[in-house]
Design a protein around this nucleic acid. Structure first.
Lengths: 337, 337
DNA sequence: TGTTAGCACTCTCCCCATGAGAGTGCTAAT
DNA sequence: ATTAGCACTCTCATGGGGAGAGTGCTAACA
């Protein structure tokens, strides 16, 4: 366990490093926070903290830099949170009530406002149910023999696909067919649809039911992501060389992020913080991810996350991620009436 | 007008510069293309070409670099095209028949294969009609008083929105209502819908018709874009400093590119080449855009484009953009039966 | 025993001089 | 018109200092 003074000093080191991105010296600590001990004493404490693994040295005579262990301790024990003030809240919420209402619009706005608030990459995922069910299917006549199959799922997402349809049927007949399918399949998940489909008498109904099952299953995989703030994040000194920047650009794409976000089962009152290699993905080892979930427990659930270098304004970021998750839950509620 | 020899030399300068990204010296030209004149003669010709504005000098004693005028002349008169060979064609087309069929899948695949083929950013837009018409609308019951309105347009795109619905109506009643709306509105464009809506007797029908008109109008604006190859493009020496890279990253987003692509009226057998400031957008002044359109004349039309530094393998890129546009036209045809 | 002053030592980083090399432009000869 | 020759220019890589920042250690001190 750390002595009080050591903890205090660690706190200052992390704060200072987060602010300046430069290794922190004993002098800087004493001067800028008018400690009533000498730099030599601070140096002794720093050596001890290094011994215990909370900070490191880039080289012999540079200042100290927090290690991942240091950040972890900081986040759990030391950090002073910078809560979202009433004014800030008002400004943000105002933007949502100004914006055209609609889930996608709000999700995108959330990503963009959050990114601006924390100066890092913000990612918001469209809420999904772990196992989506069909709400309604529709067949739109395209030409003889082909139709557009549109499936609306119970998390509000819409999936579509062009399918073969009986040559002879016109739109009216397709409507009847769709009605018949809806009667039997509505509110089922993909698995159930696949089970009941073989029992249908009509060949085409059977085939279409399986297509519908595919669409429902697809709905479970590809959560739409809204990603904002890449530019701002890349301006940070961590990405000052082109190869680091290239690496970042390569990974900050929906395809990669979807894997890193992995949908939580239920909304989360807090925010998880994954520092450096606490994250499984290799490319995130220099990153920190702050992530929280929103939505109805047992209903559709989405994620709000911030990605940035491990040197991140934790005290600022964490409350904001939490706040946005809560805000999105409320907005979702509002959409659901 | 350029003498033959000058044109030849300009051709070599551009080829060389495209290949090496380094200013081209008289020596390099003579040695690597065994010209039967001396470097001094070449230097005289280079001076003349510079005089006429086709090439420049970064500084007194560096080699020559093509100007935008030089590139333009090269593209129009000099460039040797590197046609898409039968093998390459086969390999590419194979990938499309391997992939799960579907417009979006194919568009994405096209962007990604094209990007790989030219080593630059490829952008493919989802085809749209200049003025989309409603094919069919659907109302999906969400809860008393609210429904999801889904509109399928005649370019195959699907737009959705949550709307207010009469409190008392269940799904069956909404179906009747949707059928009634479809009877009257199907195959109309947004403007026509807005004209006929006020004549409806039923209040809710009137309101919903206007919502449908909105959806149809939205369909005309936001063409979905598939963007690939950013990472590869950024590896080029043009982006070797972080600020250039940042600028590029900032602009290579769907929002910005949509503006730059501006949908063409009809498909285009060739490919337009916009070099540097031939493009209106300021941020594209160091870029070249090769763009072609695909789809049915009078039908839905999309774009295939490649974006890269003005120093681009024109002879390689242009035929490939043309080829992909043609290929997408064919695939679209296939989807349409 | 904890704290502090003092100092040697280490490592980085910036600056600058330097020289090689690449390439041009010009002149005079062919 | 072409070419050889050469002076001149500009870049770029290299390496040597030197300043500066900061530590670690030792010895003195409260």
């Amino acid at each position: 366990m750390l002595t009080q003074r050591r903890a205090d000093i660690l706190n200052l080191v992390v704060d200072e490093y987060i602010g300046t991105a430069a290794p922190v010296s004993s002098r800087a600590l004493v001067d800028r926070h008018n400690l009533d001990v000498s730099t030599a004493t601070v140096r002794n404490e720093l050596a001890a903290l290094e011994q215990e693994g909370y900070i490191t040295h880039p080289y012999t005579s540079a200042g100290r830099v927090p290690s991942n262990t240091g950040y972890r301790f900081y986040v759990e024990q030391l950090m002073a949170e910078d809560p979202v003030g009433a004014d800030e809240r008002r400004t943000i919420e105002h933007q949502f009530y100004q914006a055209p209402p609609g889930l996608d619009e709000w999700l995108e706005l959330a990503a963009s406002v959050l990114a601006a608030a924390v100066g890092n990459v913000a990612v918001v995922s469209r809420p999904q149910r772990p196992v989506p069910h069909l709400r309604q299917a529709q067949l739109v006549h395209l030409r003889p023999g082909a139709a557009l199959l549109v499936a609306v799922l119970d998390d509000g997402s819409v999936q579509e696909r062009i399918v073969a349809a009986p040559e002879s049927e016109d739109q009216a007949e397709l409507l009847t067919r769709a009605a018949r399918l809806n009667d039997r399949l509505s509110l089922s998940d993909a698995e159930r649809i696949r089970t009941v489909a073989p029992q249908f008498e009509d060949d085409d109904d059977r085939r279409l039911a399986l297509e519908i099952a595919d669409l429902v299953a697809e709905g479970a995989n590809a959560a739409q992501l809204f990603i904002e703030g890449i530019r701002k994040a890349l301006e940070q000194p961590e990405f000052s060389t082109t190869d680091r920047m290239l690496d970042a650009v390569e990974h900050l794409e929906a395809y990669e992020l979807r894997g890193a976000l992995r949908p939580p089962r239920s909304p989360d009152p807090g925010a998880r913080v994954l520092i450096g290699d606490e994250n499984e993905r290799g490319w995130l080892h220099d990153w920190t991810m702050v992530i929280s979930a929103f939505g109805e427990p047992g209903g559709a659930v989405g994620s709000v996350a911030v990605l940035g270098p491990t040197r991140m304004h934790y005290g600022h970021t964490i409350p904001r991620v939490r706040y946005f998750a809560r805000l999105m839950t409320e907005l979702l509620h509002e959409l659901d009436g």
